[in-house]
Amino acid sequence: MECTAGERGAAAASEGIAGLAYVGLRGSERIVTLLWDGKRLTRLDEPDVPGWRGRGIDCAGSRPRHLLAIGNLLLAANEASNNVAIFRLSADGEPNLAATLPSGAPTVFVRL
């Protein structure tokens, strides 16, 4: 029996944030969460469904160039708005805005 995208998302949520990918959508200024099964990316819910599993969330800036998940945080480099948005990731992977920091046209994060 094949699982629906919603069921796969629920399974991933019960295992924490492993298996999720966060994608920045420039133009609509959103971040969408996708499920990664090791072979392909799928949506957690239909794109017209409100909320983080469907339509996604606001990136808290403009032109999200790079996203980086570190532990329970997700960083978004919002190039055109000159800020870095910091999201806390809940146990099921939902990003919740925690803070924004000014930064001159950020485009990429580098782990040191």
Rank of each mutant, 00 (worst) to 15 (best):
L112T: 11
M1K: 14
A13G: 14
E29H: 04
R40F: 00
T42I: 09
V84P: 10
R26W: 07
F87Y: 15
R63D: 11
R40E: 15
A85S: 14
G27N: 10
L41H: 09
L68W: 08
A13V: 03
Y22E: 07
T33R: 15
G27C: 06
L34D: 02
L89S: 02
L75T: 06
A91I: 03
L75H: 04
G16P: 09
D37H: 03
L25P: 00
V23D: 02
L101E: 15
S81V: 02
A18R: 14
A10Q: 13
N83L: 03
R26M: 08
N78V: 01
L74F: 09
G24W: 00
E7R: 04
A77F: 06
R111A: 15
L68Y: 02
C3Q: 12
S103F: 15
E2Q: 14
E79R: 07
G51Q: 12
A12H: 15
H66F: 05
P102H: 03
R88N: 12
R55P: 01
G61L: 02
N72I: 04
S103N: 02
L67K: 00
A91L: 11
S90Q: 12
G93D: 12
G38M: 10
G9M: 07
G61W: 03
T107S: 07
V110C: 11
G19S: 10
D92E: 13
D37T: 03
L74D: 02
R111N: 06
D45S: 13
A99S: 13
P47D: 05
I17F: 04
L68Q: 10
S28W: 01
R53I: 09
P102F: 06
G27R: 09
W36D: 15
C59A: 15
S90H: 12
E15A: 14
L41R: 10
G54R: 09
N83W: 00
S90W: 04
L89M: 04
S62K: 15
N72R: 14
A99Q: 10
V108H: 13
S62E: 08
C3S: 13
G16K: 11
A18M: 01
L34I: 09
L34A: 10
R43M: 07
L89E: 08
G56N: 08
G61C: 06
G16W: 08
G19N: 05
I57Y: 03
G51K: 12
E29C: 02
A21H: 07
R111S: 13
T33K: 14
D37Y: 00
S14H: 05
A10H: 05
F87M: 04
I17H: 10
T4W: 06
G71Q: 11
